[in-house]
């Protein structure tokens, strides 16, 4: 069993006027229900606006320096994540395809290191 991070990349600024947010959330919930039913559910959530981010950068020694704002200022940022587990990569890609279809957003799928549950101490 591997665990994967599915990242949803959002554009900066308010959502387009013609976007039916409740439709998107409804479609996403359908995908999430299937992920749960398949035993793949770990966690998912949307992130608040990048303006609310605080970044800690290396300062002197290990003393962090806080800055107001996201790590990088770009036109597209991490808008939400879904963490899923599966022993079938094609199944994960299938979920990601559906998340893309529901949101129209660029999606990144990336495995966590190693096998098993990344939240637990290594067993090997």
């Amino acid at each position: 069993m591997k665990t994967y991070l599915i990242s949803l990349m959002s554009a900066d600024g308010p959502p387009p006027d013609d976007l039916d947010v409740s439709q998107v959330m409804g479609d996403l919930e359908l995908v999430n229900a299937d992920i749960r039913a398949a035993g793949g559910w770990v966690f998912a959530g949307g992130l608040a606006d990048t303006a609310s981010a605080t970044t800690l950068r290396p300062g002197r020694g290990r003393e962090a320096v806080l800055t107001d704002g996201p790590f990088v200022e770009v036109k597209e940022h991490l808008g939400g994540i879904s963490v899923v587990k599966s022993n079938d990569y094609d199944q994960v890609i299938g979920w990601a395809r559906r998340i893309h279809a529901a949101t129209g957003l660029p999606i990144e799928v990336r495995p966590f290191m190693g096998d098993g549950d990344p939240g637990m101490p290594a067993t090997e």
């Binding site: 591997k2 022993n87 079938d88 990569y89 094609d90 799928v109 495995p111 290191m113």
Partner: peptide, 14 residues
């Protein structure tokens, strides 16, 4: 290896 791309012939739908 890292993503676990399966070693199989794809399902009919794919």
């Amino acid at each position: 290896r890292d993503t676990g791309i399966p070693y199989r012939v794809p399902h009919d739908s794919d």
